[in-house]
Design a protein around this nucleic acid. Structure first.
Lengths: 351, 351
DNA sequence: CGGCATTTTGTATTCGATTGCATGAATTGT
DNA sequence: ACAATTCATGCAATCGAATACAAAATGCCG
């Protein structure tokens, strides 16, 4: 191939692909037999199978997915609809999902909606149209029309990163509230009395909502409260959470312990402290959730909560596969979390 | 007396979905017109369009993707086949891709192959079977059978994160070799003479190969060489790269500057230094590639190379869409990179 | 060897939307 | 006002594989 001056390309001629008919002709059988060799080999004579398989290999035959999906009403595609790829957490979960799906001969279709429930619905509709068999979503809270759509089209789905307390929707996750509850209790135990919270907007994000609630519950139990000015909401980004932390640092009565609803918020907070010369953990303790590399490699290392990142992905994939194949499977799974105590937390300094 | 045989319980209707026929009936037109309203609205009378659109909304009609793909030979799905979701870099690139694809009404199918070219081929074959229209791959080096497959089935594709010097395969990326060349020159300029390299295995990974080559070229130009014992290969993970760095630290004649082929290697190296009480940058300078948050938030912050993460994804999506739609589009694009100098590099200490 | 059960294979229909071709309606030109 | 053109729409064939049903081949038994 010679490089043309403009170096442009157009689509190559499509569809030299061979069909079941071609295979049938070469093997001297009918297309029905070809189909059976692929889908129900036990119904076909061993010698005939050999002939067909040979033809398949020789012609590099790959069954036409669309035709197959059209006729059989199944596409072997599973959709994963997540808020964002950029947060490492979801990347790792979907990675685990894909491994399971791939091993079972399914493909994964991945899409992100940037924390916009309307976009989530729109994207899911599109995927349903593409014939995606089943879905995995993040979080418990979604547009009611989403569930209507899935019900309407008979598509199994699983919600992840939370377990539906009403037991209405199949779901796999851990107890978000209990996690921050435990973390806050730990901080109270260290002697902290004035707290701050760096959170994602709770609108349409039940993980953030629950995590905030867990913190408030622990404080209430200890007779403490979370002052309004000590709560900052913002998007999941280091820059945003650093800005949020700056506001907390500017308060007259500054918190001595700040909880981030995930590691990104916590690390953003750490950045703001460094810039302001506020020492961690001497002047302020900071905690995150998810126990990501980002937090673990900070100086000091971030105290966080190990969430079942990989386990959730694997379990979600297993559940949808089981349901697609008509097998029984637990619809609700609560997986464990674990506090990971590191250098970003300590007793508050007396002064 | 009619003996009713075993009572047939109608299975929970899996597919209550409405078809073009239902829409046509409700709107009082033919299915052909329904199809035209969706695909070529300019051919249909405005009033008829309104009727059809109304029926579509009322019936919650979503066109059947498989049927559509079967007949029209286009599925409007683009496959992104990446080494791993877990490295933040690919997550961000695919995120940018999906944004463009979504805006143009395409869906993205994402799959990972864990740096295994055979798995890459297998997965791609499966996706071709599912009717995926076009592909985006990472890296220039792939199984020849992959290109044969794509050619055979007439599927446009783009390679990313490198630009094919032979101009054989459409590709979008930056000059990996030039990037580490520039970085190494910078380190030489600071006064470093003994270098270390933390790299991904070069097998099937041309990015790693090129980045190593760029470093060696810069050294050669300055009359320096990279000692064999100063080069460590391993998987992309903090634990692995920390172990690799420990080997470098154990050398009798320890390097004063260590280049990581990406930020994960560099940060892993930083971790090992911290553990060993080796000061950065006083005792050793460390650099990465990709300028991720992970590196930028370390103490000291990592010197790195800003690579066109988002731009590559966007450009790749734009190219495959253009080619699918028969438009002309530049097949080769070299995007710029930029050195980002921070606290992890300094002049070597005289002693 | 006939008869019946079982295995193997083929024939023909079907899935749902797209599209070439044909038809009838509306518009234009002269 | 009528032919020529354009526009809007419907009819019916089609994409490629799966599958119900029918038919043929085989096996087994007494």
């Amino acid at each position: 191939m010679s490089a043309t001056p403009t170096e442009q390309v157009t689509a190559p001629s499509r569809d030299k692909r061979s069909s079941a008919k071609d295979v049938a002709r070469l093997a001297g059988v009918s297309t029905a037999t070809v189909s059976r060799v692929i889908n129900n080999p036990e119904q076909v004579d061993a010698e005939t199978q050999r002939l067909v398989r040979e033809a398949v290999t020789k012609l590099r035959y790959v069954p036409h997915g669309a035709a197959r999906a059209l006729r059989s009403h199944r596409s072997r595609m599973v959709g994963a609809v997540v808020p964002s790829f950029e947060y490492a957490l979801y990347a790792r979960t979907t990675s685990a999902m894909q491994a399971v799906l791939d091993a079972e001969g399914y493909s994964m279709v991945l899409a992100e909606h940037h924390y916009d429930l309307a976009a989530e619905l729109r994207i899911t509709k599109q995927l349903v149209g593409h014939g995606v068999d089943a879905f995995v979503f993040v979080g418990l809270h979604h547009d009611p029309a989403l569930f209507a759509l899935l019900e309407n089209y008979g598509r199994p789905y699983v919600l992840t990163w939370g377990v539906d307390p009403m037991r209405q929707h199949p779901s796999i996750g851990f107890d978000n509230r209990a996690a921050t509850f435990a973390m806050t209790q730990h901080l109270i135990g260290l002697g902290h009395r004035r707290f701050g919270l760096l959170s994602a907007p709770t609108e349409g994000n039940d993980r953030a909502t629950e995590r905030g609630a867990g913190m408030r519950a622990a404080l209430a139990q200890a007779g403490l409260a979370l002052a309004d000015e000590c709560v900052q909401y913002g998007p999941i980004s280091l820059a945003a959470s650093a800005a949020m932390m700056r506001k907390l640092l500017a308060l007259e009565h500054r918190p001595t312990a700040v909880v981030g609803t995930n590691d990104v918020f916590a690390v953003g907070g750490m950045i703001a402290c460094r810039e302001a010369g506020v020492r961690i953990p001497e002047d302020i303790s900071i905690t995150g959730v998810d126990n990501t590399d980002l937090g673990a490699t900070q100086t000091p290392a971030l105290t966080s909560i190990r969430t079942p990142i990989v386990e959730v992905g694997r379990a979600a994939a297993e559940q949808v596969i089981a349901r697609l194949e008509g097998k029984e499977h637990a619809a609700f799974q609560t997986l464990p979390f674990e506090l990971v105590l590191r250098g970003s937390t300590a007793e508050p300094q007396k002064n």
